[in-house]
């Protein structure tokens, strides 16, 4: 297992190198970085200043050298400074990471809590109205734009019913009860969006498992149906579902950008959006790097979890 882990982690290195090159390229694709810092007019009227900044930033080095210097900085945790606020990007992202993590984890948990039971029930009650209802719900979950669902939640629960705060954020470490109130609407918005593919995957995996011989044997032995479904069904059906769970990390990260904007949550996604609108490329680069690293890590963890859930998989043998 540990051998496999090392191999899998090593495989991720070329991938991350390619990602880093693409992220580095953002600086140059978006125009002249010196112009972005001091403005085009200043560059034209003050060539000495331009040359000094270019030298200070290492922009007069050949491109491969620039990339290697940038990569060295990134590996040391130096992601540059925001053009807008001059705050170190690492600091700006670190300040907002806990907020985004709380939202993403809560949404992930809600997605699992809704879709796994729904998928199991749909499979057990196959081709009944429960099954059809679950399919419609799952398809709707995929089709509904998360920002619109968020706006409707704000309208119904925050404005008309006035039972939950329509926007804002309180950290769970500051006031857990209040934090929960603020977290419910955004987490459900983001979570429901994840349920579509998860419910359908759980349903089809369960349908397949429930038709297996070992399930028939378990029933023939006289096991209680609930035990057959949970012990023999769910555990074996979890394997393909896990892939979807891992793949959803990307959608979850993207979803936080939208949901943070809808509910005015001061997280990483909102920071990234402000940076995109202000053409603040170092912050965009930092966010893309962190988001992609999160996805690559989630995929690695998914691979490892395969072995934990399915003892038949023995890595590296």
């Amino acid at each position: 297992m540990s051998g496999y882990l090392v191999r899998r982690a090593l495989n991720a290195i070329p991938l991350l190198l390619f990602v880093s090159m693409a992220v580095f390229a953002l600086t140059h694709l978006s125009g002249d970085p010196v112009e972005a810092i001091v403005g085009g007019g200043e560059v034209a009227s003050n060539p000495e200043l331009e040359a000094r900044i270019r030298h200070d930033l290492g922009l007069d080095d050949p491109l491969p050298v620039q990339y290697l210097n940038w990569l060295k900085g990134v590996l040391r945790g130096d992601l540059g400074r925001s053009i807008q606020t001059h705050q170190p990007v690492r600091e700006a992202l670190a300040d907002r990471l806990p907020t985004t993590l709380q939202l993403a984890l809560a949404a992930w948990a809600i997605g699992i809590l809704i879709s796994l039971p729904l998928g199991v029930i749909a499979a057990v009650r196959q081709n009944t109205w429960v099954d059809h209802g679950a399919t419609v719900l799952a398809l709707s979950g995929v089709a509904v734009p998360s920002f619109w669902m968020g706006l409707m939640f704000i309208l119904f629960f925050g404005v008309w019913a006035d039972i939950l705060p329509p926007s804002g954020f309180v950290s769970i470490t500051d006031d857990p009860l209040k934090a929960l109130q603020y977290l419910i609407l955004p987490a459900v918005t983001l979570g429901v969006h994840q349920t579509g593919s998860l419910t359908r995957q759980m349903r089809s995996a369960m349908v397949e498992v429930l038709n297996q011989d070992y399930v028939r044997t378990a029933r023939a032995k006289g096991l209680v149906e609930r035990s057959v479904i949970i012990r023999h069904g769910v555990r074996n059906a979890m394997l393909p579902v896990l892939t979807v769970l891992g793949l959803q990390a990307g959608a979850l990260v993207g979803g936080t950008v939208v949901v943070e904007q809808v509910f005015a949550i001061p997280g990483m996604g909102r920071l990234a959006l402000t940076a995109v609108l202000a053409h603040d490329i170092p912050v965009v680069q930092g966010f893309v790097l962190v988001a992609t690293l999160a996805v690559v890590t989630a995929n690695l963890v998914t691979d490892v979890m395969y072995g934990v859930l399915d003892p038949r998989i023995h890595y590296g043998r």
Partner: peptide, 23 residues
């Protein structure tokens, strides 16, 4: 396929945001 893997590593909305930020 390694290039495709690398493109897939970017969350799609984040990649779209980055492209729009640049272009």
């Amino acid at each position: 396929m390694r290039i495709i893997d690398a493109i897939s590593a970017f969350p799609s909305l984040v990649l779209a945001l980055a492209i729009v930020a640049v272009l």
